[in-house]
Every structure is written in structure tokens, then in C-alpha cells.
Amino acid sequence: MIKLIDVHKYYGDTHVLKGINLDVEKGDFISITGSSGSGKSTLLNLIGGMDRPDRGSILVAGEDISSYKDEQLTLYRRERIGFIFQFFNLLPNITVFENVQMPLLLNSLEEEDRVSEYIKRVGLAGKEASYPYQLSGGEQQRVAVARALIHDPEIILADEPIGSLDSRTGIIIMDLIKQLAEETHKAVILVTHEHYLSNYAKREIKIKDGVLLQ
């Protein structure tokens, strides 16, 4: 489903990604581990269509997204990608319900029942009208998980999803991501520097100095 062919990325003089080749299939759960500055997040941003490679191709369902224009990348993210971040990145001034609903709204859909269902699935029923600042860290990340899945994307990109949670809550969140991804047959690419999270993945890929060590 996703195929990275000899992907290179430079930031100024720094060669961040050095000829990355990677295949991700539907339903895959891949963990990419590596130390800080190894190029994990850059790789995720390229797959997520936030950035373009300087060299190489990224094929998603046969289409090379590295040649996409900005509008096409926006549409790609909107329809096919679900992001989960370390610091949740919820919109602070709208409710839980509206945060979860946001990807649908950006796709000009409302589907309020679906939103309620996902909120229930992540265990936040009754918190629909709450604002992010009224929730705990774990609850905020549950909202983020629901938001990442609500619009039925093909790929979930999770960047250190439990990095700011305590270990107990982290495990709960990881279980939730895995369970929901399996139920909905999503491809999950998890970026982390915690090696133990690789246990959740079907495949573990290490990255060091911009090179994948499979």
C-alpha cells in the first residue's frame, strides 16, 4: 500500500534521510525506533504528506505523492491519514465532540452518530461537551486516537503517542490503538524511541542516522 523507494531528505546541509526503502501493507503495524535526531519524525512527515522528499518516491496505492501539489497533499492527509501526536495536539477551544468530528467536518461530513460511537469506543462517553483542558493527559490522547480514526483513513501515523503519559496510561492507549487498528484494518506506523513498544508491532524497524536497519 505504501512504498518508499530510495527516499532522501536534506535540511540545509544535513542529510536527514539517506535512501530509505520501505513497504507497508494494509493492516501492517510497524514500529520505527531510533534515537533522537535519527530521522523518525521526518520519515513520518514524508509519509503523512507534510513534506516532500528531495529525492526518491513515495508511492501510496500506486500513486507517487512526492510529486503532489500542496492542495493534493492536503486532500491526501484529509482523507487517507490519521495522525496521533505525543502532545495530543487537540484544538483547545472546541469540545471533545468537535475535536473528534473535525476530520469529518474538513471532509464536509457531519455524521454525528459516528462521532458519538467513536467517543464511546475510546471510553469517553459523557465527556463530549468537555474542553481539552478539562481532561487528563490519557483522556486527551483517547480523543486524539478517536480523531485519528473517525474519517476511516488508510494509514495511522503515531509519533511518540505515549511519550507524555505515565506507563500505565501509556499501555492502555497503546492497547486501544492496536485494538482499533486491527478492528478497522488500518496500517499503523508508530514512531518511538521506546523499544518495548515494538511488542505491539508486527514489524520493528530501526533507524539510525537516516538509514533503516531492518
Binding site: 503523512g48 507534510m50 492527509r77 495536539n89 484544538l91 474538513l106 480523531r147
Partner: peptide, 16 residues
Amino acid sequence: KREISIIRYLGGSWDQ
């Protein structure tokens, strides 16, 4: 800036 970035990540366009 952060919220605008989140919206961009969620697939919000510059026009939006």
C-alpha cells in the same frame, strides 16, 4: 501557530 499547524496536519487547507 500550533493550532493552525494541527489543522494542517488534519488535512485543513490554507483556504480553510
